[in-house]
Design a protein around this nucleic acid. Sequence first.
DNA 1: ACCCGATTTGAGAACGTTCTCAACCTTGAC
DNA 2: GTCAAGGTTGAGAACGTTCTCAAATCGGGT
Lengths: 340, 340
Amino acid sequence: MSHRATLHDVAAQAGVSVASASRALIGGSASLEMISKVRRAAKQLGYVPDATARSLRMGGTRQVVFAVDDIGNLNYVAMLRAIEHEFTGAGIRLNVTATGRSERQTLDLVRSMNSGAGDGLIISPLRVTPALRRALLETVVPVVVIGSLHRDVAIDVVSVDSALAVELAVAHLVATGRRRIAFLNGPLDTHPGASRRRGYLAGLAAAGMTPDESVVEVADDFTIEAGRRSTALLIERRPSNTFDAIVAANDLLAVGAISTCLASGVGVPDEVAVTGIDDTEFAASYNPSITSVSIGSAERGKRAARLLLERFAEPTLAPRTSAVHPSLIARASTGVTRGA
Amino acid sequence: MSHRATLHDVAAQAGVSVASASRALIGGSASLEMISKVRRAAKQLGYVPDATARSLRMGGTRQVVFAVDDIGNLNYVAMLRAIEHEFTGAGIRLNVTATGRSERQTLDLVRSMNSGAGDGLIISPLRVTPALRRALLETVVPVVVIGSLHRDVAIDVVSVDSALAVELAVAHLVATGRRRIAFLNGPLDTHPGASRRRGYLAGLAAAGMTPDESVVEVADDFTIEAGRRSTALLIERRPSNTFDAIVAANDLLAVGAISTCLASGVGVPDEVAVTGIDDTEFAASYNPSITSVSIGSAERGKRAARLLLERFAEPTLAPRTSAVHPSLIARASTGVTRGA
DNA sequence: ACCCGATTTGAGAACGTTCTCAACCTTGAC
DNA sequence: GTCAAGGTTGAGAACGTTCTCAAATCGGGT
């Protein structure tokens, strides 16, 4: 096994032409004798077709890239699983890459699509910069964005009303008797950060409450650690700036908020109720279990995959937008005891 | 832009031969005038080299595959990050694929390496079946296994003494005064499942305790849900088969154990202490924070990446094994209050 | 026996790149 | 003015596959 057997070797071994060998293996018109001869030779040599050569000839790797900012967020894992499930049937391999937090890395990835990194791209970017928007538009393969593009560009999008998600959380807290609702947001230069802030303000307005910036904290990332640090700041400012609830912009921030509250002797949900967003497994399993607004991560992944498959089949389709509706799941962190 | 510009187009635009265009862009011997001419033409046409064609010609995609059973396990995310970090410097793209729990899927993936899915494979399999071992040996590209192969095969391995990890947990529980230590294991047909069971028995023996199978449960997966179900069974059998500690075979099982204990009114750590393994972010952030044995996931990822890079440079190297040592991090779930 | 249509086969092009090789041009030394 | 050495260029092969097209073979109907 000094070197992989090629189709040429198989053909020679079977005593037929390369063209016939290809047909026999791939299923073109070939006699039964030819098929069995070639199959035998292929098995004997341990022949495995070269995907690179096939891609070059056929024009198209059967690979789709899924790009995500933080692979450690279970939110994206749910999307990933749904997408993978949708593609395995179609014989498409999914290539997951974490773009990290640097725009540079994201741009490199998007541009690499033009050099044949895959036949399509599903991307869920936290930050949509003008450069990224331009890069996405210049991509030669179809792209589906999970999130928002801020502007009307000719790209398929699966979106969710992120602001509404926060409004639902605020409404739930108001309905369960909370009166001073703090807000633990993620970075404002991200799409979720910006729209969730809008939702927070809208939610307060709907309840006839006036916003108070002294109970609003902006974490520098959507992570547990960032949530911890920002929550500590919120607690420090009490009791002069008091609150009886925290709306966190995602589940990881909510976990950071709860753990910091408890460590500081602030009872959850007795003194402070906490809500998250994403409805990850993390939220359901935490102690106390965390009330969270589902923004349909699995559903969004599924839809993104289908949009891409449809575009593969029909490339001239007009760009489409698919919206998923958020829904709140009440749990112990807002005083709702779990049913059986 | 009906169709991507090729090197041929660039050469025509610049009025030179394809060979010269290639040299000018790649850095072969070429005059300054040639370089600037070709660069200009390339920019003008928006030329991006085709990775597939280059791979075919050069023999080798600059891509490495990382295969993992459960991408939802933060343990693997830590490995992933470390591996990615190691590769980005070398200009290698990492292709992550979750093989799910089916052996079939894993085998397909490993075999796909022979058709050019990547230049190397890092795999962390829960179950090493004879078929998988054979497939790994037949792989034409270098493979690094994170875990264990059960047998002496000519493949690079990064291992950790998984049994010792459990022994450390048992010793810690004994040292903190626990006397009846239950064991919440994962499936026995997995490598971690089997070796952690050995560690549990060894740990008990070292403390002069006799094992009691009525306080041992085997979950059918290394997940929170499975941990919940099995812990419920353990609790059901109390108080006739009582216990004051649970050693869980990983952090997810530990979370399932704690949440089920608390839901059943069993205090943690007062009545029952719980330990996990993997030292994931989950363990550190849970309430109570979970004592866990770190098995150096990030370190193992880093070493695996380096082993692979070294083998790329020196393919004839003898197979090596690199071992990481486990270490226990004590937290609240065993009654240790966290320091500042 | 002959011919027409249908099926099977083989030779070779093509995908886009890099690399080998020979031809060409420059430069400088005698 | 000639020659050698060195650098630069272009033609074409090669990577391994699929596909087009024409040649060859086979079948049956007269």
